[in-house]
């Protein structure tokens, strides 16, 4: 029977905290940038102009339909050769994860916008609003309410996806725990503790999302 000894991890606490900080910081960056790409992708795919629609759909499908691990490695190793730009592991993985998240956010935002009854934008137009005004004043305020639960879910997935950046040696929680595991010869304790750390952050978040969903369902 294996003898668990979690006490040994205490000496690596600063390493773990450091990694956790990188993971959380990374999540914030890729959620914000991802939402930005998502907005661009959604408006592009709903554009009146065919070329823009095509461009947006190509972006969405390219990132939605390839594995994120492959994208990470491709952005770090292949893109510099093709484009001639050197990127640090952090830049490469932030870019890949933001674009990957953005492709999913795009679909959520697009779905939210087209779920609003066409009569709403017609009523806006009949009042003399431009398409932009009716999007801002009438459609988006209603659509955002519907998107929020799905956007939150996708952001939770984004948080977990940051664990993949360890393959590019970005010093996140998983990478630091690899260091700790090698150093202490205690991989079971280390990875169990890491799993608990992710869950301890995400479980309260999922509860908040579920509450939010219920509240939105009631108010509609």
């Amino acid at each position: 029977m294996y003898q668990w000894d979690f006490g040994i991890l205490w000496s690596y606490r600063w390493l773990f905290l450091n990694g956790l900080g990188v993971t959380i910081g990374f999540t914030i960056v890729i959620v914000v940038c991802g939402l930005l790409f998502g907005l661009l992708g959604a408006f592009g795919s709903l554009s009146r102009f065919r070329a823009l629609r095509l461009l947006a759909l190509t972006f969405i499908e390219a990132f939605r339909c390839t594995p994120i691990l492959v994208q990470l490695i491709w952005f770090y190793y292949a893109l510099p050769i093709l484009a001639g730009v050197e990127m640090t592991p952090i830049t490469a993985s932030a870019l890949a994860l933001s674009l990957y998240g953005g492709s999913f956010y795009s679909e959520i935002i697009r779905g939210g916008i087209i779920s609003i009854d066409k009569g709403q934008s017609e009523a806006g137009a009949a009042l003399g609003m431009t398409p932009g005004q009716s999007m801002r004043r009438i459609v988006l305020p209603q659509a955002i309410k519907r998107m929020i639960p799905a956007l939150m879910n996708q952001s939770i997935i984004q948080f977990k996806n940051t664990s993949l950046v360890s393959v590019l040696a970005v010093p996140d929680l998983v990478y630091q725990s690899q260091v700790a595991a090698h150093d202490s010869y205690r991989p079971l304790e280390t990875y169990t503790a890491v799993a608990v750390a992710y869950a301890a952050i995400l479980i309260p978040l999922t509860i908040i999302v579920r509450r939010g969903e219920k509240r939105l369902a009631v108010s509609e």
Binding site: G119, A125, A126, L127, G128, R137
Partner: peptide, 30 residues
Amino acid sequence: RATTGMVFQHFNLFPHMTTLQNVMEGPVTV
């Protein structure tokens, strides 16, 4: 379109605004 008023079969009121805000929306935004 700002010079022509239209009333729809299914009302198409803006559900996220109060009655007053619905009526104010055109004057304020347009």
